[in-house]
């Protein structure tokens, strides 16, 4: 079991609805809390992460700020359509510390993960880190 959403492990950002060049979505999958992705206004916002191969995933973890409602979806195919709902969650507000969002999913086959931020506690939200625990499926 390891983090299959690391850029260094071949994961990529396939799509994002907002991007400040200084705080791109790639900052979520660079393996550190130091950098972050920010939304740039309006809701909902979304990001699609494509894993290097078809994975079996067990849990998703996010470090974020000011996220209120978040939904996760997965797709088994390489193209970024045909997503199926995975989970939806209300997140508690934190004051000057990162939110930790954890979603256990049992076992789910996924090539792509879609993160939808339906609402936030402020005009903008930040996601510092995305971690997806899983393993590659072979054959």
């Amino acid at each position: 079991m390891f983090d299959v959403a690391l850029a260094s492990g071949g994961a990529q950002i396939a799509l994002s609805t907002s991007s400040d060049d200084s705080h791109p979505p790639e900052h979520m999958i660079d393996g550190t809390d130091e950098t972050f992705w920010t939304t740039t206004g309006l809701y909902p916002q979304e990001v699609i992460v494509r894993f290097q191969a078809l994975m079996s995933i067990n849990s998703v973890e996010l470090s974020s700020y000011d996220v209120q409602n978040i939904a996760l979806e997965t797709s088994e195919s390489d193209s970024i359509d045909s997503f199926e709902p995975l989970a939806e969650k209300e997140v508690e507000r934190t004051d000057h510390q990162l939110q930790t969002v954890e979603v256990s999913v049992g076992e789910r086959r996924a090539q792509c993960l879609r993160i939808i931020i339906n609402s936030g506690y402020d005009h903008f939200v930040a996601v510092h880190r995305l971690k997806v625990n899983g393993k590659a499926l072979h054959g």
Binding site: D33, F36, T38, G41, H96, L98, F124, A126, H128
Partner: peptide
């Protein structure tokens, strides 16, 4: 004003790690 709020939020986000 909206742009200013964004700049302020970036400062907060940077201080959280």
């Amino acid at each position: 004003e909206f742009h200013k709020m964004y700049q302020e939020r970036l400062q907060v986000y940077s201080s959280l790690a």
